[in-house]
């Protein structure tokens, strides 16, 4: 995208690429804030960490006007239908970010009241684990989401707790040292 350097003054790009570029810097997010993670969400949004640098600074409080659903905090069984309703009201294209470990896997609230991962209810694009994740961690997740938007990808699958499919391997069996080493080796 460097029109200044090109000799003709024109740039060429595929339509899909340009669309992705336009979308990723104008993220209108719906913060579905329920619990502790909301405090870190606030911190990320305010002056110190400033989400606005990534074009994601302006929360829309109507699901119909937003395109990224930030699910921030534990979702209880009582809350689950509300979350599903909000997700269904959003227009396509839409993405979902699971913010905090409770939304990723349920975390240490493995009990009668809590949904063990929102990906059993709605498809999740980006998982940001942490209890709560540090703002740096959140910004990292946001950049990963932008990459995904640029590629034009969206998650469409739900997690099945019986067959254990549809969730990143790292989040399936909890944390193990062997798994962590394997993960690092695969990356390098």
């Amino acid at each position: 995208m460097s029109a200044l350097n090109s000799p003709t003054g024109f740039i060429t790009s595929s339509f899909k690429h340009a669309l992705g570029w336009a979308r990723k810097f104008s993220i209108f997010q719906y913060p579905f804030v329920t619990a502790c993670c909301g405090m870190e969400y606030m911190a990320t949004n305010c002056a110190h960490y400033d989400q606005d640098r990534f074009g994601a600074g302006f929360p829309r409080f109507s699901p119909r006007q937003s395109d990224v659903l930030f699910v921030v905090g534990t979702i209880s069984q009582k809350m689950a239908p509300v979350l599903k309703t909000v997700y269904d009201q959003m227009c396509e294209p839409k993405w979902v970010v699971a913010f905090g470990v409770c939304t990723c896997t349920g975390g240490f609230y493995d009990n009668y009241a809590t949904v063990m991962g929102i990906d059993t209810i709605i498809p999740v694009d980006i998982y940001i684990p942490g209890c709560p994740p540090r703002p740096e961690n959140v910004l990292d997740g946001l950049i990963k989401l932008q990459e995904k938007i640029q590629r034009g990808e969206q998650s469409r699958t739900l997690y099945d707790p019986h067959t254990k499919t549809g969730r990143p391997v790292e989040l399936q069996g909890g944390y193990t040292i062997e798994g962590h080493i394997k993960h690092i080796e695969a990356k390098s």
């Binding site: 619990a35 905090g73 534990t74 209880s76 609230y109 009990n111 009241a113 809590t114």
Partner: peptide, 10 residues
């Protein structure tokens, strides 16, 4: 009750 996480039970 929308954030009932069963603190007392846990």
């Amino acid at each position: 009750g929308y954030l009932h996480r069963a603190f007392e039970k846990m």
